[in-house]
Design a protein around this nucleic acid. Structure first.
Length: 582
RNA sequence: CGGGACGUGGCGCAGUCUGGUAGCGCACCCGGCUGGGGGCCGGGCGGUCGCCGGUUCAAAUCCGGCCGUCCCGACCA
């Protein structure tokens, strides 16, 4: 219960000049957050209320599945990070204390929780166990951006589960999926759970929770019954139109034509009759890496694009684009490279699966020339893999996919023994043998949920919070000059609402604008801040003995409330309006 | 890491090219009016012009270095 005359809500008429994203602009303008430095944000009182509401919602669902809340430090020894091989991640903040001991600032807490698990979990009787905390994460981001959407310091709720074996891990994972689905549902956001890449976490499988919005940094492929990050998405490509059959490759002159469209136009063929060659070097021959030379030529249809994440997976390790001098030395002139007779015999070829059998146009490895009638398998040897980026119009189970921009608000991973093995976190099983703990981790970012809600639901007047996230349920506005009847009536109503234990218990909280400001300013601020319900006490309604009710979403005028309501009646009326609000 | 832009009061900006009194709108403070859409009038407070160095009689302005912020790309649990 809060009087705006005493509350820090520094609203601004204009957004900072460097604010681009909608959520960035509106969250600053509405007085929710202020910036300290690149990717460093202070949450002001109203913004922090939003954050805490999201935390409360997440906490409730964590407790409901039996996860136990703890708190682990942000600052910690470097040693566990060295053991898991994550010390060299560039995003990890590293520092030394006065005795020159190496420390890191945690970017997630796998190493730390596993260190404890190694000591605390002894027996299969201790399992399964799930721990979680809300704690600051520190990341030396190459590029913080878009207000609180991508920051260097942020609070994450991260949970970690420990099980006896893979089956146990899988079933715990499913319980968390259920909890996360319920969390997302309760936020009131539009969201998708998508298959995702395991990324730097390593592990056996992962999902991301994505909230579609313009400021999002990811793209997701969607079809009925299908949702995946484009990094890993697979779909049926539209049919290709291969080049005419030829008994052997035939060179054609294409001087200066290095782009697919140019070559296709000159030869009068569809872009899908070309094979685009993308040379990469497999950076590290890690575990599972395919044998052979480091230089690979990835071939996809001319109307497709290579997906580096999928390519890396197909080749069993991280890849980087080949440098021009590597291309010149080992394959052919940049712009005209192809799979047939590269300069070096050490080039291996991976062909995308969406290339149907047939003849294609490829670079000739000679300047200003292409080959027609190149048939994979006959004219060059290759392996096959799904290495292309899906695109709109591809189909999954017959349904065309669409691609939407989205912000990743949560990310969950099956870690397996990725961390327990190097950190020697094991338990004694019934058979008396030590076995590694099977782990999974579950992260979710309240700040991103808040920003995504702003992005998805704002209109030209400002923010429109969903009920579960709103800093206050009700924004009570008094109009009229100080000392007027309207002011007195508003004051009286505010006191009655504050006096209600029931409303407090149900978290139907009120922000009361009792400031001595003009009508326009008060109403504009209310719409900018975006509490779901606005109660307005002005002369018009007062003459009828009523309070005006406005639903923020859509700026809908609700039926007015009688001013005379008291006690249980008042509670019932407000509760009813609250529960009807979006 | 590559490319681009910017740094002048709390916010938004002008002034910089062509060196010479630091300015505007909003916000803020005081007084008055107004009181259903950031209203009006009058009077005020507030800025080492990001930092350091140089050139000059004189630097927000010219030169050099550094720092910071934003955008695009690379990168990103």
């Amino acid at each position: 219960m809060t009087r705006l005359s005493e509350y820090l809500l520094p609203t601004e008429r204009e957004a900072p000049a460097d604010a681009e994203a909608l959520s960035h602009r509106l969250m600053v303008r509405a007085g929710l957050v202020r910036q300290l430095g690149a990717g460093l944000w202070t949450w002001l009182p109203a913004g922090w209320r939003v954050h805490r509401k999201i935390e409360a919602l997440i906490r409730a669902e964590m407790e409901a599945i039996g996860a136990q809340e703890v708190l682990m430090p942000v600052l910690g020894p470097a040693e566990p990070w060295r053991r898991t091989g994550r010390y060299d991640i560039p995003e990890l903040f590293k520092l030394r204390d006065r005795r020159e001991a190496e420390l890191v600032l945690a970017m997630t807490h796998e190493e730390i929780v596993t260190y404890h698990a190694a000591q605390l979990i002894r027996s299969y009787r201790d399992l399964p166990l799930s721990l979680y905390h809300f704690q600051v994460k520190e990341r030396d981001e190459p590029r913080p951006r878009a207000g609180v959407l991508r920051t260097r310091e942020f609070i994450m709720k991260d949970a970690y589960s420990f099980d006896r074996d893979e089956a146990g891990m899988n079933s715990t994972y499913e319980r968390f999926v259920g909890a996360y689905d319920r969390i997302m549902e309760r936020t009131g956001l539009r969201w998708y759970r998508v298959q995702s890449d395991v990324g730097m976490m390593g592990g056996l499988g992962a999902h991301e929770y994505m909230a579609p919005c313009a400021a999002g940094e990811n793209e997701i492929a969607l079809a009925p019954g299908y949702a995946a990050n484009v990094e890993v998405a697979s779909a049926q490509a539209r049919p290709a139109s291969p080049d005419a059959e030829r008994a052997a490759p035939e060179e054609v002159s294409t001087p200066g034509l290095t782009r697919v469209e140019e070559v296709a136009q000159l030869l009068g063929v569809h872009p899908s009759a070309l094979l685009k060659a993308y040379p990469v070097v497999r950076a590290a021959a890690g575990e599972g890496a395919l044998e052979g030379p480091a230089l690979w030529l990835a071939l996809v249809r001319g109307d497709h694009r290579v997906n580096e994440v999928k390519l890396a997976r197909a080749l069993g390790g991280p890849v980087r684009p080949a440098r021009p001098e590597e291309i010149e030395a080992q394959i052919g002139p940049v712009g005209f490279i192809g799979p047939v007779d590269p300069r070096s015999g050490d080039v291996r070829i991976v062909l995308d699966q969406a290339v149907p059998a047939g003849c294609y146009v490829t670079g000739a490895n000679r300047p200003g020339a292409h080959l027609r009638g190149v048939r994979p398998g006959r004219d060059f040897q290759h392996i096959s893999a799904d290495i292309r980026m899906v695109q709109e119009g591809d189909t999954v189970a017959g349904h065309p996919i669409v691609i939407e921009r989205a912000i990743e608000v949560a990310n969950i991973f099956k870690l397996g023994v990725r961390y327990s093995t190097p950190l020697e976190a094991s338990y004694l099983d019934e058979d008396g043998r030590a076995k590694p703990l099977w782990m999974a981790s579950y992260g979710i970012g309240p700040a991103r949920i808040a920003a995504a809600a702003v992005e998805q639901l704002a209109d030209e007047r400002g923010i429109s919070w969903p009920r579960a996230l709103a800093p206050f349920a009700i924004h009570l506005v008094s109009l009229g000059r100080p000392g007027s009847e309207e002011r007195a009536a508003a004051e009286d109503l505010y006191e009655r609402i504050c006096a209600s234990e029931a409303l407090r218990a149900e978290h139907i909280d009120v922000l009361y604008d009792d400031r001595d400001l003009g009508t326009g300013e008060k109403l504009t601020v209310a719409e900018l801040l975006g509490c779901p319900l606005r109660l307005t006490v002005g002369r018009r309604a007062l003459q009828r003995g009523e309070v005006e009710v406005q639903v923020r979403r859509g700026l809908l005028e609700g039926a007015p409330l009688p001013l005379s309501l008291e006690g249980e009646e008042l509670v019932r009326a407000l509760r009813e309006r609250w529960q009807e609000a979006p």
